[in-house]
Design a protein around this nucleic acid. Structure first.
Length: 137
DNA sequence: GCCAACGTTGGC
DNA sequence: GCCAACGTTGGC
């Protein structure tokens, strides 16, 4: 069973469109232990929401797939922080904003809502299904 | 080991 | 721009 995740990026730095244009990307630069542990827990085939942070309407905008499990982050000289490789699967038919997630009863326990600064967070299967249904509603 | 000071993230 | 939450650093 694949696991589900949510991964934040500032679109000014690297956005969904960049990932689609490139076809694949190394998710690097994570320097938080909790987020790093989540990267280490990822397996090939896991799916993740691409989330745009630090914008007027923070929101999940697309689905990506983990295409390579954790390996040493090339941007880390020490070699101890992990990175993973991702590829785009498809955009959400409509973005699901943080505001919408907060307003959805079944999502109030989401890691990302409980801990807003966590940049790589797990998503429960029930949460994943709910968010996808919101994106298609 | 505690705590204050400071830096960063990210929502608003 | 402001502020809350959180992490890190460094003095003691």
């Amino acid at each position: 069973m694949p696991q589900f995740w949510l991964m934040k990026s500032e679109p000014a730095e690297y956005g969904w469109d960049d990932l689609v244009r490139h076809g694949t990307a190394v998710w690097e630069g994570v320097r938080n232990h909790q987020a790093a542990n989540n990267l280490r827990a990822m397996a090939v085939g896991d799916e993740a929401l691409f989330y745009h942070s630090a914008v007027a309407t923070p929101a999940a905008v697309g689905i990506m797939r983990i295409s390579a499990a954790a390996f040493p982050d090339p941007t880390d000289d020490g070699g101890s922080w992990p990175a993973v490789r991702v590829e785009p699967v498809r955009p959400l038919a409509r973005p699901v904003s943080l505001r919408a997630m907060k307003g959805e009863g079944g999502l109030s326990d989401m890691a990302i809502i409980r801990q807003s600064r966590l940049s790589v967070a797990p998503v429960r299967p029930s949460e994943w299904a709910r968010i996808l249904s919101m994106a298609e509603a």
